[in-house]
Amino acid sequence: MSLSTQDVEKVARLARLAMSPSEIETSRNQLNGIFGLIAEMQAVDTDGVEPMSHSQDLAQRLREDKVTESNQREAFQAIAPQVEQGLFLVPKVIE
């Protein structure tokens, strides 16, 4: 499998990345290289092997349902570009 320029443009748009035509071409080659690696791996016989969703063969550890965090709004908002009435301000979003 190999990616077209349009495929890369679509992925870049979904990731909100502005890319120049030369960057698109570089990325296309790199991504196709990764597909090459995947193709090699797919040649391995994995019949009867349970697929994993994580590289570590462990189960998720859980925490007790307890409130452990206190209000640190002032500290967090000190580094925010713009705040008002306790809210973070961002450029207007219209649905």
Binding site: R63, T68, E69, R73, F76, G86, L87, F88
Partner: peptide
């Protein structure tokens, strides 16, 4: 471990994980 209580002042229950600050990791609530 941030509180889920309704009606608090804005962002007073938004900890580092809720804000997605770099380096934070999720730990699932039992």
């Amino acid at each position: 471990g941030a509180s889920t209580a309704f009606g608090a002042e804005p962002n007073t229950q938004a900890d580092a994980v809720s804000l997605a600050l770099p380096g934070v990791l999720p730990v699932l609530n039992k």
